[in-house]
């Protein structure tokens, strides 16, 4: 069950998105997310969401996989939608579920719910695309490069990036291990999903202690293995994969900026009814 989470995974491939400089992808994803929160109308949001959809098509990641990462957030999505429906009581009434009661579902509420859900989905899809198409090492390398100006302030940028690389590398290993430990303790009658709170806490202890012990053991062994491979913190390291800002990056940058600009422009310069309703948020 735990093994089926697809958020944050990398799917090796040869698509255009895979070939982009990870720095380009990282910065543009960041820009996209910021813009997503600034967009105020449906036209802009559709444009942005459509662009994320285009990204999925270009990346050739199976739609099923993308759907899985959205599905993981289904509770947040439903919660948001319900909250919006409850919150908006102004505007044209669409439906009064409880006759005689004040509460009503209004068009405003529906618009806001749809708007917010679409925004979350676009956010998840775009940020998933980043990790789907960029290997963890490339991603942390890109972060290291982008943050390198901070070295002036004696921030250990390289160490931070190395920690991230190792964390990303070990997440799947530890998830797998967690799965095994949970099953092993369940086999000894651990009650993880039922029973009294004290029993459940005891069972949690039986899972997290072995997990931590194992994580520390792995860390110690990994440190030794890295030493054997001549790793010294802060020394000059070369790279197998050199990041190059190519024409492809320039093209993608241009398209991306154009989409974001168009979406934001229509949000801040309302141009009549063509651009639809602007939800009150």
């Amino acid at each position: 069950m735990l093994k089926e989470i697809t958020i944050g995974q990398f799917f090796p491939g040869r698509s255009l998105l895979h070939k982009l400089d990870p720095r380009t992808k990282l910065v543009l994803t960041f820009v996209y997310i910021v813009a997503l929160f600034l967009v105020r109308n449906f036209f802009g949001l559709f444009l942005m969401a459509g662009f994320a959809g285009l990204g999925v098509l270009i990346s050739r990641i199976p739609l099923k996989t993308v759907w899985k990462s959205i599905r993981a957030l289904v509770f947040i999505v439903i919660f948001t939608a319900v909250l919006q429906l409850l919150y908006h009581s102004d505007g044209d009434v669409l439906w009064r579920p409880f006759p005689g009661k004040e509460f009503a579902v209004t068009w405003d509420g529906v618009y806001s719910a749809v708007f917010l859900v679409l925004r979350i989905v676009a956010l998840v899809v775009m940020s998933s695309l980043l990790t789907y198409t960029t290997s963890p090492t490339m991603l942390t390398d890109a972060i290291e490069r982008l943050l390198s100006p901070l070295k002036v302030f004696h921030v250990k940028v390289h160490s931070l990036a190395m920690m991230m690389t190792i964390a990303l590398r070990f997440i799947p290993t530890l998830i797998e291990e967690l799965d095994i430990i949970m099953n092993a303790q369940k086999a000894r009658g651990a009650k993880l999903d039922a029973g009294k709170l004290s029993e459940r806490l005891k069972s949690m202890v039986s899972i997290f202690i072995p997990l931590f012990v194992s994580a520390f053991r792995r860390a110690a062994e990994l440190a030794v293995a890295m030493e054997c491979r001549c790793y010294t913190d802060g020394a000059n390291r070369s790279r197998l994969k050199i990041m190059r800002f190519s024409r492809l990056d320039l093209l993608w940058l241009f398209v991306h900026v154009a989409v974001v600009f168009a979406a934001l422009f229509t949000s801040f310069y309302p141009m009549g009814s063509f651009f639809l309703f602007q939800p009150v948020i």
């Binding site: 990398f10 190792i166 293995a225 491979r229 994969k241």
Partner: peptide
């Protein structure tokens, strides 16, 4: 516990 990177060739390059 000896593999540092998430991708085979990136690890061998370490």
């Amino acid at each position: 516990n000896q593999i540092v990177a998430s991708i085979v060739e990136e690890d061998v390059a370490f």
